[in-house]
């Protein structure tokens, strides 16, 4: 088989460890001066692509792709520091209509076609919207086989074997390339971006594009009515001793 052309889409999201807050107008989550990082599932995707190459699976090229605000460049540089060969950035300004999963899938289809990718590795979801749809829709649009929630990926002679965790065990699926894979948490442990690689990444190619370059018109189909925080947890009470606890439980009708 000739070398794989892997496409890894990555998304810039509010850092996993930061507690998001809803804006005053209840229309969205507050993003200004909040720490952003790469969607953790996408870190797994990029790591897996790099590991495939390290495992001597013939890989011709790993392309990292992101659609998002100008700052998405930072996470593309991170992806390149981890091992992607180059990056493509479709700039979608924050003030412009945002892409929905179907829009992203349509865009990715065009990227796959222009880059002649034969393997797309995506996160199973992004932690901001938690839609968990993009990979599946992309596979549908491309009419490619898909394996979701991968916890292990093996490739030999055009055949991809993916292990996925399901309730009470694992499921193993097999398909021929080209293919779409979505990643799950147990797939790997992403490495750190090392300083020499961060330096190298600065010199790698990063193409800046617009939606128009891909001839894509994907207006939002959904309307956000309201964003609210989960109801606050009711405070607990402290009791002094076992007797205190028993009488409190009785008081609450739990005993």
């Amino acid at each position: 088989m000739s070398g794989l052309r892997i496409l890894v889409p990555v998304k810039r999201v509010i850092d996993y460890a930061v507690k998001p807050r809803v804006n005053r107008a209840q229309t969205a989550v507050e993003t200004a001066s909040v720490k952003h990082s790469m969607n953790p599932f996408d870190e797994l995707s990029i790591e897996e692509a790099v590991r495939l190459r390290e495992r001597k699976v013939p890989v011709a090229e790993i392309v990292a792709f992101s659609a998002g605000p100008p700052k998405s460049q930072d996470i593309l540089r991170t992806a390149m520091a981890i091992g992607a060969d180059r990056g493509i950035h479709v700039v979608v300004e924050e003030k412009d209509p945002q892409l929905e999963p179907l829009g992203v899938a349509k865009l990715l289809k065009k990227v796959v076609e222009s880059e002649k990718s034969d393997l797309v590795i995506l996160g199973k979801q992004s932690i901001d919207d938690d839609a968990g749809q993009t990979g599946q829709m992309l596979a549908g649009l491309l009419n490619w086989p898909q394996a979701t929630q991968a916890s292990k990926v093996e490739i030999a002679n055009n055949t991809v074997t993916v292990t996925k965790e399901v309730d009470g065990g694992v499921e193993t699926v097999k398909a021929k390339l080209p293919m779409v894979i979505t990643t799950d948490l147990r797939l790997n442990e992403p490495r750190y971006a090392s300083l020499p690689n961060i330096m190298k990444a600065k010199k790698k190619k990063l193409d800046k594009k617009t939606l128009a370059d891909y001839d894509l018109d994907a207006p939002p189909r959904l309307k956000i009515i309201k964003v609210t925080e989960p109801p606050p947890r009711k405070g607990g009470v402290k009791v002094d001793d076992v007797d205190g606890m028993i009488s409190k439980l009785k008081e609450l009708g739990a005993l």
């Binding site: 850092d15 996993y16 460890a17 750190y192 090392s194 300083l195 020499p196």
Partner: peptide, 14 residues
Amino acid sequence: VSDGVLAQDQTQIA
């Protein structure tokens, strides 16, 4: 320095 890493997110910082 001989080698180094830079944390890319909050989890790596921790």
